[in-house]
């Protein structure tokens, strides 16, 4: 069965690009546009990996990670955060909150697949 990945980003462009790349690589992909929506989706279904942006309305990536790690359903699921170079402290915040790894924007489809396979083979 294909691995299921949830991509969380308030930017439709980013979600589209991530989803397209992952689907082409054979993953099942679901999308959520912010942390709150992601929690709703996660409450309804099981995922093997979460890829989340950090800056989002309603609930940002850090709070999402904290919530996921605190709830039973997905606490052991890998979480990759999307950051930019200028988000230096964000990367540490994400890690501290429980993120598994990070991906620096902009990234190539190959890099995305490589990182995803690294944490979710």
């Amino acid at each position: 069965m294909a691995k299921r990945i949830l991509t969380v980003d308030d930017s439709k462009t980013m979600r589209d690009m991530v989803a397209f790349t992952l689907k082409k690589a054979g993953f099942d992909v679901a999308e959520a546009e912010d942390g709150k929506a992601a929690l709703v989706v996660l409450g309804a279904s099981k995922f093997d990996l979460i890829i989340t942006d950090l800056n989002m309305p309603n609930m940002d990536g850090i709070s999402l990670i904290k919530n996921v790690r605190a709830a039973s359903s997905h606490r052991a699921v890998p979480i990759l955060i999307l950051t930019t170079e200028s988000d230096g402290t964000k990367k540490a915040d994400g890690k501290a909150a429980g993120a598994t790894g990070w991906l620096v924007k902009p990234f190539s489809p190959e890099k995305l697949i490589e990182l995803v396979q690294r944490v979710c083979p």
Partner: peptide, 21 residues
């Protein structure tokens, strides 16, 4: 994401991006 791979619908993504902008 900055690479234009095979079958990568960049034009479509661009359109979405500008709508979003």
């Amino acid at each position: 994401m900055n690479s234009e791979g095979e079958g990568y619908p960049l034009a479509q993504f661009r359109k979405t991006y500008f709508e979003e902008c």
